[in-house]
Measured scan of single mutants.
Amino acid sequence: KYSDMIVAAIQAEKNRAGSSRQSIQKYIKSHYKVGENADSQIKLSIKRLVTTGVLKQTKGVGASGSFRLA
């Protein structure tokens, strides 16, 4: 599940300011076997996790910027 992968990526990075979408994508692609549409799936999952309150956006708008666990 992409949401689990995103949470794992943010936990692994341990950046106080949060993790960027690009760094999350890079982590997921190197640690998991994902399909061609992974980028758009990650983007959608990040937006969903922010609206449900699992992630907090520290910089930027939408799916860009930095995110950390709430």
Rank of each mutant, 00 (worst) to 15 (best):
G60L: 06
G65A: 15
S23A: 11
V7C: 11
R21Y: 15
S30R: 08
Y2S: 02
E36P: 14
S19Y: 02
N37D: 14
S20F: 03
A63G: 14
Q25H: 09
A17R: 12
K1R: 11
I28P: 02
Q22N: 09
G65V: 15
A38D: 04
S23R: 06
I10K: 00
R48P: 01
G53V: 03
I10A: 02
T51S: 11
E36A: 14
G18S: 04
E36N: 12
S64T: 14
S45W: 15
I10D: 00
K56G: 03
G53E: 03
T52G: 06
A17D: 11
S66W: 14
G62K: 06
G62R: 06
S45H: 14
K1H: 10
R48F: 14
S45Y: 11
G53Q: 03
K1P: 09
V7Q: 03
A8Q: 07
A12K: 04
Y27A: 01
I28W: 15
D4I: 09
I46A: 01
S40M: 14
I28Y: 00
I24N: 00
N37H: 08
A8W: 05
G35W: 04
Q25K: 07
V7W: 03
Q11E: 08
K56H: 12
V7R: 05
E13F: 09
D4T: 08
Q22H: 08
I6T: 01
T58Y: 10
L44H: 08
V34C: 06
I46S: 01
Q57P: 07
V50C: 15
Y2W: 15
G18E: 04
T58K: 04
K33A: 11
I28K: 00
D39I: 08
A9H: 02
K26E: 13
V34S: 03
A63W: 09
T52L: 14
S45F: 09
I42W: 03
K56A: 08
R68E: 10
K59C: 14
D39R: 06
V34I: 06
A12G: 04
Q41L: 14
A38G: 04
S64I: 10
S40H: 13
L44D: 15
G35C: 15
S40C: 10
V54T: 04
V50W: 03
A70L: 07
L49M: 11
S19M: 11
V61C: 14
I28L: 04
K47T: 09
A70I: 08
E36M: 10
V7G: 00
K56P: 00
I42G: 02
G35F: 04
R21L: 15
S19I: 12
I46L: 13
Q41H: 09
G62M: 05
L44Q: 11
G60Q: 07
K1T: 11
I10L: 07
Q57F: 15
V54H: 05
Y2T: 03
F67D: 03
V54W: 04
V50R: 01
S45D: 08
Y2P: 02
K1M: 11
K59P: 08
S66H: 13
A38H: 05
A9W: 02
Y32A: 02
K43T: 13
K14R: 10
Q25W: 09
H31I: 05
S64F: 09
K26S: 10
E13L: 15
S20P: 03
A9K: 01
A70M: 08
L49Q: 01
G62H: 06
G18T: 03
R21M: 15
R21V: 15
K29W: 05
I24D: 01
S3I: 11
K47P: 02
V54A: 04
G60V: 06
L69T: 04
A70R: 06
S19T: 08
L49H: 01
A8V: 05
M5E: 00
G35M: 05
N15A: 08
A38M: 06
V50F: 02
H31T: 05
S40A: 12
V7I: 15
S45R: 05
L44N: 10
S20H: 03
G53C: 05
I10C: 05
M5R: 01
Y27N: 01
Q57C: 11
R16V: 11
V7S: 02
S19P: 04
S30G: 06
S30Y: 06
K59F: 08
T52M: 14
T58F: 09
S30W: 04
A9G: 02
K29A: 06
G60P: 06
K1E: 09
N37S: 06
D39S: 07
S19H: 04
K47I: 13
G60E: 06
T51G: 08
R48E: 13
N15D: 06
K33G: 07
T58R: 06
S3M: 12
M5P: 00
R16S: 13
Y32K: 01
A9I: 03
I10T: 01
V34Q: 02
I10W: 00
K43H: 11
A38K: 03
I24F: 04
A12T: 04
L44G: 06
I42Y: 02
Y32S: 02
K14H: 13
E36R: 15
G62Q: 05
Y2M: 10
A63T: 12
L69C: 07
A63F: 09
E13C: 13
K14N: 14
L55Y: 01
I28C: 04
Q41T: 05
R68S: 11
S3F: 14
T52C: 15
I42E: 00
S64K: 14
G18L: 03
Q25E: 13
S23P: 15
G60Y: 06
R16Q: 12
S19C: 12
A70C: 09
V50M: 05
A8F: 04
V50A: 02
Q41K: 15
I42H: 00
K29V: 07
V61L: 09
K33C: 11
L69A: 04
G18D: 04
A70N: 08
K29Q: 07
I10F: 00
Y32V: 02
Y32M: 03
G62T: 07
K56Q: 11
L49P: 01
K56T: 13
A9E: 00
G35K: 04
Y32G: 02
S30T: 12
K33V: 11
K33D: 12
G60S: 07
I42N: 01
A63Q: 11
R16I: 11
F67Y: 13
A17G: 12
G18P: 03
N15H: 08
Q41N: 06
R21G: 09
S64P: 10
K43C: 13
Y27F: 08
K26T: 08
F67L: 10
K43Y: 14
Q22P: 05
R48I: 13
K56C: 15
K29E: 07
G35R: 04
V54C: 07
Q41E: 13
Q41A: 11
K47G: 06
E13P: 03
H31E: 01
H31Q: 04
R21P: 08
I10V: 13
H31C: 08
T58D: 09
A63E: 12
E36L: 11
S45Q: 13
T58E: 08
V50D: 01
A17T: 09
V61G: 12
V50L: 12
I28G: 00
S64W: 08
S23V: 05
A63K: 12
L69R: 02
Q57L: 08
N15Q: 06
S19R: 05
K14P: 09
S66F: 14
E36K: 15
F67M: 04
N37M: 06
I6V: 09
L49E: 00
I42S: 00
A17H: 13
Y32H: 02
K1N: 12
S66G: 12
I6K: 15
L55D: 01
K43N: 15
S40F: 13
A38P: 04
M5K: 02
S3V: 12
